[in-house]
Amino acid sequence: MDALIRFMDVVNRTTTRIAGYLATGLLFAMLGVVIVHVFYRYVLNDSFGWTEELSRTMMVWMAFLYFPTAHRYGMNVSLDIFIAAIQDHPIMRYFGLLIELAVFVMLCGAIWLGWGLMSRASSSFTLALQLPLGYVYAIMPVGFALVALVSFERLLRLVANIFYPGRYKVNVFGSSTAAGG
């Protein structure tokens, strides 16, 4: 168990870091594309036909690529005021495990559904760049798979914590201070 958790830890630390670099690069690229677009239109009175489509796609990819990081570090928003008082009660360990199990099963389903969507879309094309839509949708199975890996590791840690309470660090519940504002 220990060895498996350590292994998953290495895997996920590496994949989330690489995915995070890619996502950050995409934000750079999005900014570049839109700025160049405004410059061309306003200063040179000319436009590209594909900047909107490209930057939109990059934004969706960016979100999916940071999905595993958000889950790994428990940064997704949750409503935790109802459980705040009993957060340290032993029963919450089972609750946490249950939630993570549901999330993991859902993610596995999502990989499968995303894969189906990607395969079905392979004969369609985007309007502006005429890219095969399958490539665009590829981020779904990939993104869900990366989150599922993260979820699997959290699952292992949560199971281990039932037998050895407090042995593994894991943010059971999401954060209440991430999004919004």
Binding site: R41, S47, G49, W50, E52, A128
Partner: peptide, 17 residues
């Protein structure tokens, strides 16, 4: 974002946006 629509405007010297 369709190439034909944009080409028509460009061909007449306008700027498709």
């Amino acid at each position: 974002e369709s190439e034909i629509q944009q080409r028509l405007v460009r061909s007449m010297g306008g700027s498709p946006t």
